[in-house]
Design a protein around this nucleic acid. Structure first.
Length: 556
RNA sequence: GCGGAUAUGGUGUAGUGGUAACAUAGGAGGUUUCCAACCUCUUGUCGCGGGUUCGACUCCCGCUAUCCGCACCA
């Protein structure tokens, strides 16, 4: 692997800033850490990547797009576990003032300090006095909770409710489950996708686009019935060898199909979405040779997850996690169900209806109720536990220890046959979560090519046509004899077409204009020359080959 | 969050206690029959806030941001 080339990184960042792709946000006010603008070129690029992502998943046929608020009530994120998970308990060294995480300090004093409450951590810290990793001091300040989510108040004054800016889009998909389930005619599997902003108040954002405080994310929540075999078709990827870093096996090369069959990938749906993710990333211009999937080790995974893989892309910052694909079990829906008491379940019918025969006794409410009053419920439970052969009157000892005599008129025979045709279950979820900014960074990183054209420095952004921010540049060879007017009219015709962006450029020599177009990755340049005026044809130049061919204006 | 370095046109750099230079880029015009050519004209800059000083881009302090280590990264 090549050494990180920092000067290439600097030149790339320079191009991105100069050409309006990525810029530090609010720079005239001094800038803000971890916040970036997508400029006039980058904004379009981001949109194209988002659109390609949406189309990629919508094409599967059972996936719908939704959009949920970024402002999220406290209770939602408390139920999801984020309030707990996103809090770090910090303590500060008394001698060198270095801040440390309390659970990290206490790792050698407890098997799982992450699971302790703030109070437990405090008392363990006081007892064990771990040395400061920076200065070996053992004096520690009181533990404080630091939350990595942005706090806000929803509403004003005393009626305001606490809330957060969402740290991920996923919770909206879970809280909307009932609407999604109904929309999908109450049939699983189905998925919901959403692209949008997420927020994490990182202590120390670094490395440009890699760790941001506000970021673009795209998530799919795919709801499945755990009682059903997944049955995915992996033949489209059968020739494709993928680099996998499997838990305990190191780096291996194999196809998705083999990985699933050999249980390296532990769930077929996870494998299927890994394959789909691979296709998406290649589609938007990620170099397949610099893409790998890394499995989370057992202790790295959230406790409820059964398998989790990260798609990692190699670029100027080394290998960076850009997509996480996790089998989350029923954790999320169950958490919201517990917190709200609302059912977030799907129905499955049994292959064979279950017949339950009941033969026993129950109380006659009209007679037993007035007699036993407050104990009537307990009497009912005791009577229903009796075998059908019991005869009355009968002395019973209730759970409370109270003794009662149940007379024949207090009871009636209960003989029923119940047929249960199915059950309500909590669906399982497979979640591919994409860090769009990180992917865009790597698209640019992989596309950025410094060629030594005629011994001079020359840069080309070899962006995929699927995501290129500008589709066409239209140039008049010279702005005279009507060439400018013809080029303008072609430019406007192209712009009026859906999902097409064209740029008109007439300043500077033709070579300079090609160079400008190459630098922002315009795939095709159209040039109007003298011949165009005579026979209504133009030349089209291909960015990567530099070759030109002549076509009719009407065929554009 | 801690330590170190840095901050000058759009970009990359030079430089000075008396308000700034070079390259490149941008605009207008000219020239040119297709890959950053050339000529003329032109636009635009000392991160922010204090202090010292007659005067601060320059010296001092604070802040912010960037880069590099350390720590952190569900």
């Amino acid at each position: 692997m090549a050494e990180p080339d920092t000067s290439r990184l600097e030149r790339l960042s320079g191009v991105l800033k100069r050409r309006g792709v990525l810029l530090p946000a609010f720079e005239i006010h001094g800038g803000a850490k971890g916040l970036y603008d997508f400029g006039p070129v980058g904004g379009r690029l981001r949109n194209r990547v988002n659109q390609t992502w949406l189309n990629h998943w919508l094409s599967l046929g059972n996936i719908v797009e939704i959009s949920c608020p970024t402002v999220t009530p406290y209770a939602v994120l408390e139920a999801s576990g984020h309030v707990g998970e996103f809090s770090d308990f910090m303590t500060v060294c008394g001698s060198c003032e270095e801040a440390s995480r309390a659970d990290t300090l206490l790792e050698s004093f407890h098997s799982n300090p992450d699971s302790l409450t703030k109070e437990q951590l405090q008392s363990l810290l006081d007892q064990s006095q771990p040395p400061c990793p920076a200065c070996q001091g053992i004096e520690w300040s009181e533990i404080t909770a630091q939350n990595l989510m942005f706090n806000t108040t929803i509403g004003a004054g005393s009626s305001g409710r606490p809330g957060f800016l969402r740290p991920e889009t996923a919770q909206g998909m879970f809280t909307s489950f009932s609407a999604l389930y109904r929309h999908n005619r109450e049939r699983l599997p189905f998925g919901a996708i959403q692209v949008g902003k997420g927020y994490r108040n990182e202590i120390s954002p670094r490395q440009g686009m890699i760790r941001l405080r506000e970021f673009n994310m795209a998530e799919l929540e795919y709801f499945i019935n755990p009682h059903e075999e997944a049955g995915h078709d992996f033949t489209p990827w059968s020739e494709q060898q993928i680099t996998l870093i499997a838990d305990g096996q190191g780096e291996i090369q194999m196809s998705f199909k083999d990985a699933v069959e050999q249980n390296v990938i532990r769930h077929a749906t996870v494998g299927y979405f890994m394959a789909q993710t691979f296709d998406f990333l290649v589609k938007v211009g990620i170099d397949a040779q610099r893409l790998r999937f890394r499995q989370h080790e057992a202790d790295e995974m959230a406790h409820y997850a059964s398998d989790c893989w990260d798609a990692e892309i190699h670029g100027s910052y080394g290998w960076v996690e850009c997509v996480g694909i996790a089998h989350r079990g029923c954790y999320d829906l169950e958490s919201h169900e517990k917190a709200t008491g609302k059912s977030l379940r799907a129905r499955r019918e049994f292959a064979e209806p279950q017949v339950i025969e009941t033969d026993g006794w129950t109380i006659n409410g009209a007679t037993a109720g007035p007699v036993f009053r407050a104990s009537a419920g307990a009497v009912k439970a005791a009577v229903e536990a009796l075998p059908s052969t019991t005869s009355f009157p009968q002395m019973l000892t209730l759970e409370s220890g109270e003794q009662v005599t149940v007379e024949p008129e207090h009871v009636k025979r209960d003989q029923r046959t119940e047929t249960i045709t199915g059950e309500w279950y909590i669906p399982h979820v497979v979640e591919p979560a994409f860090g769009i900014d990180r992917i865009i960074w790597h698209i640019l990183d992989h596309a950025y090519d410094e060629t030594g054209k005629d011994g001079e420095e020359y840069t080309v952004m070899r962006l995929s046509e699927n995501v290129a921010p500008v589709d066409y540049c239209v140039f008049p060879l010279f702005e005279k004899d009507g060439m400018g007017e013809l080029a303008q009219s072609i430019h406007r015709t192209l712009c009026s077409k859906q999902n097409l962006v064209s740029m008109y450029d007439s300043s500077g020599s033709i070579g300079r204009r090609y160079a400008r177009a190459d630098e922002i990755g315009v795939p095709k340049c159209i040039t109007v020359d003298h011949q165009s005026l005579e026979d209504q044809t133009v030349t089209i130049r291909d960015r990567d080959s530099g070759e030109q061919h002549r076509v009719d204006i009407d065929s554009l």
